[in-house]
Computed example of a mutant assay.
Amino acid sequence: MIVAGSPAAWLDRAGYHRIDSPSFDLSMDSGFILDGEVYPGGDLTIREARALRFVVP
Rank of each mutant, 00 (worst) to 15 (best):
residue 9 A to T: 14
residue 8 A to N: 07
residue 18 R to Q: 08
residue 8 A to C: 05
residue 44 L to I: 06
residue 37 E to T: 14
residue 47 R to C: 04
residue 17 H to W: 05
residue 55 V to Y: 09
residue 49 A to D: 06
residue 16 Y to A: 15
residue 2 I to A: 08
residue 47 R to E: 06
residue 23 S to R: 06
residue 3 V to C: 06
residue 19 I to L: 11
residue 32 F to N: 01
residue 32 F to T: 03
residue 28 M to L: 13
residue 23 S to Y: 02
residue 48 E to Y: 10
residue 33 I to F: 01
residue 32 F to C: 03
residue 49 A to P: 05
residue 54 F to E: 09
residue 18 R to S: 07
residue 46 I to Q: 01
residue 25 D to F: 01
residue 30 S to P: 04
residue 51 A to L: 11
residue 55 V to R: 15
residue 52 L to P: 15
residue 7 P to D: 05
residue 2 I to H: 05
residue 15 G to V: 00
residue 43 D to R: 14
residue 6 S to C: 08
residue 15 G to A: 01
residue 52 L to Y: 15
residue 31 G to I: 06
residue 55 V to L: 14
residue 6 S to F: 02
residue 24 F to C: 07
residue 29 D to N: 12
residue 47 R to I: 04
residue 34 L to A: 12
residue 39 Y to R: 12
residue 8 A to G: 04
residue 1 M to S: 13
residue 25 D to E: 10
residue 50 R to E: 12
residue 20 D to T: 15
residue 38 V to T: 14
residue 5 G to V: 00
residue 46 I to Y: 01
residue 56 V to Q: 04
residue 14 A to Y: 08
residue 49 A to I: 11
residue 29 D to G: 13
residue 8 A to Y: 04
residue 18 R to I: 08
residue 22 P to D: 02
residue 49 A to H: 08
residue 55 V to W: 11
residue 5 G to E: 00
residue 36 G to L: 03
residue 51 A to F: 06
residue 35 D to E: 10
residue 22 P to F: 00
residue 26 L to D: 03
residue 1 M to C: 14
residue 22 P to W: 00
residue 12 D to V: 15
residue 30 S to G: 11
residue 14 A to W: 09
residue 28 M to P: 01
residue 38 V to E: 13
residue 13 R to L: 15
residue 3 V to Y: 04
residue 49 A to R: 11
residue 44 L to C: 02
residue 47 R to H: 06
residue 26 L to C: 07
residue 12 D to F: 09
residue 1 M to W: 12
residue 21 S to E: 12
residue 56 V to G: 01
residue 36 G to Q: 03
residue 42 G to Y: 00
residue 43 D to V: 09
residue 11 L to W: 05
residue 11 L to K: 03
residue 9 A to E: 13
residue 1 M to I: 14
residue 27 S to C: 07
residue 34 L to M: 14
residue 14 A to D: 10
residue 9 A to V: 15
residue 50 R to F: 09
residue 47 R to G: 05
residue 33 I to Q: 03
residue 1 M to N: 12
residue 44 L to T: 00
